[in-house]
Simulated assay, not measured.
Amino acid sequence: MRAVVMESRGGPEVLKVTEVPDPVPGPKEVRIRVKAVALNHLDIWVRKGVASPRLALPHVLGADVAGVVESVGPGVTGVSPGEEVVVNPGLSCGRCEKCLSGQDNLCPRYEILGEHRWGGYAELLVVPEVNVLPKPKNLSFEEAAAFPLTFLTAWQMVVDKLQVKPGEDVLVMAAGSGVSVAAIQIAKLFGARVIATAGSEEKLRRAKELGADETVNYTHPDWYKEVRALTGGKGADAVVDHTGALYWEGVVKATANGGRIAIAGASSGYEGTMPFAHVFFRQISIYGSTMGSKGRMFGIIRFLEAGRLRPVVGQVLPLEAAQEAHRLLEERRVFGKVVLQV
């Protein structure tokens, strides 16, 4: 099969289109003919060696896949060849206490497709049957590939960690990213007032079209003061953040007394300045968040099929253009997801 293989760590140039052996499905595994695979910032971090630095090379990236079931391994009973499917990118043992209590993303053996094992930048992909769900019928393959990782991540942040309530002010950082595109919609779904930040007026305009009530350009000096002004001096009740060190101090200062912050990444760097007085005196709660449990995908898909949530595809390129796709994402030139057609 054709695949985009990461031969070493480095820039986009390390991604090469080549041929590799077709994967063979084992017991309770499904082989998928990939139709579309979406990029995530995780792909960039793995490529650079920031994430999973000891990962064996060569490697194939790609967490978010939509396609058609081509064949199934022994013991597969719930999926048949020819079905259009989407892949849940979270992989776990399925046997431990965390998995069996519905917290599989806390499994000691938890992995993410495309990071810890070969992913979807390829014509074929083999995954466990439990990671395969029916593709929403109202979505194209490109749209279906654009929602799993980011919507799972945003759902856990907004619903499970922050427990957003109607009428609350929710600050969503970096509105053009896949996670934030999802978080804006999910926060609105739960009745919140959304304040979105971004670094360009075009992205702020797109965020408003998506449902954000207010917007702030976080390249402005003291941007957090604008957030506080928009909330009557109070600050945001809940914050969705993955921007990292560059904006962290501002994020804390933009948060209300007793507010909550959920962090799912650190795009601008992993080591930030913590204004401790703001945290303990104003009693701010900070939650780490990675992905979401497998079960959350079912509810997300129902909202997608009902048209109450929607993935946003910013750019579609052929598989062979993976290098350019990485540049688009890394340079933040796209609002929404970058997707590769296979």
Rank of each mutant, 00 (worst) to 15 (best):
A192E: 10
L171P: 11
A182I: 03
I184M: 05
L162I: 03
Q156M: 09
E201A: 13
P166Q: 12
L162Q: 05
T197D: 03
D169W: 15
E202G: 04
P166I: 08
L149T: 01
V172C: 04
V164H: 00
V172D: 02
K203H: 12
A183C: 03
A196L: 04
K188H: 07
G167R: 08
M173D: 03
F190Y: 15
M173E: 13
S177R: 04
L162K: 06
L189W: 09
T150R: 11
K188C: 04
K165I: 04
A196V: 02
F151Q: 09
V164Q: 08
K165V: 07
T150I: 13
L149P: 05
G176S: 15
A187N: 09
A182E: 05
G176F: 03
A192N: 11
A154D: 02
L149M: 13
T197G: 04
A175N: 03
P166W: 14
Q156W: 07
Q163G: 12
W155P: 03
T197S: 12
D160Y: 06
F151G: 10
T153E: 10
K165W: 14
R193C: 04
A174R: 10
A175C: 08
V172K: 00
K188P: 08
V159N: 06
G167C: 11
G191I: 13
V172S: 06
A192W: 13
V164C: 03
W155I: 11
Q163W: 12
L149R: 02
S177C: 11
D169N: 15
D160H: 14
G167L: 10
V170R: 03
T150Q: 14
I195S: 07
V181K: 00
I184W: 02
A182N: 02
S200N: 13
S200L: 14
D169Q: 12
A182R: 01
G167M: 07
L162H: 04
A175L: 09
G191T: 13
I186D: 03
L162F: 11
L162E: 00
I186G: 02
W155D: 07
M173Y: 05
V172I: 08
V170K: 07
K188I: 04
I184R: 01
A182H: 04
Q156H: 15
A174Q: 01
A154G: 06
G191E: 13
S177F: 05
Q185N: 09
A183M: 00
V194Y: 01
L171G: 08
A175G: 13
D169M: 12
G178Q: 07
Q156N: 14
T197Y: 06
P166D: 12
A183R: 00
V172E: 01
V194S: 01
E201G: 10
E168V: 06
S200M: 09
L152K: 08
F190H: 15
L162S: 08
L204N: 01
W155M: 10
S180W: 06
L149Y: 05
A175R: 07
G178T: 07
E202D: 11
M173H: 12
P166G: 06
V164G: 03
W155S: 09
A175D: 02
A174D: 09
V179T: 05
G178A: 10
G199W: 12
T153V: 11
G199C: 13
L162G: 01
V158I: 15
L149C: 11
A196E: 07
E168K: 01
A174F: 11
L149N: 06
S180H: 08
T197V: 06
T153Q: 06
